[in-house]
Amino acid sequence: MLSGTCSADLVPEAQRAAGVRVWPGACRLTVFLPKSTGEISIANLQQNGRLAVTMSQIETHRSVQLKGNVIAIRDADEADRAHVERYAAGLRASFAWIGVPEGVTRGLNLWPAWAVDMDIVNVFAQTPGPVAGVKMPLPAGSV
């Protein structure tokens, strides 16, 4: 899971996210960004509240990109931690599947994290191929 942000002077930042929590109705999302490496991303979001999140299944390259606006940034709490840990376990398994041993990915530093709430504005197909970049329908009730 990847996050993209941009500073006020248009310098983009790439950042691995540490999982998401989908809100009821699927119009809003909480994205977890590791505190260890997320400083620039958070600074960008405080200047320019636009956030891009790409979710990709490593084994198949099936991917989707969500874009939206940040509505709140807070410290992730213990209730969020389960999401991050579940995501971390899945990520390590996926990396193992492409040949990166779990011994290498075990040290991935995803916690503590910030919890970034965002309204989903657009969803795009992102799987490599002819439909990459095509806008997908949003659930009813989205902003």
């Binding site: 990847l2 996050s3 993209g4 942000t5 941009c6 006020a8 248009l10 983009p12 930042e13 790439a14 950042q15 691995r16 320019n48 636009r50 956030l51 891009a52 999140v53 790409t54 990709s56 390259h61 991917s63 990109q65 874009k67 990396f95 492409i98 040949g99 990166v100 992102q126 490599p128």
Partner: peptide
């Protein structure tokens, strides 16, 4: 290319885009 890299860009309005690079 064993672990795919990541690229972030933005348009002129500061809307970011993030994806893997082959």
């Amino acid at each position: 290319g064993i672990i795919p890299g990541v690229i972030a860009t933005s348009d002129r309005d500061g809307v970011p885009n993030v994806s893997y690079i082959s």
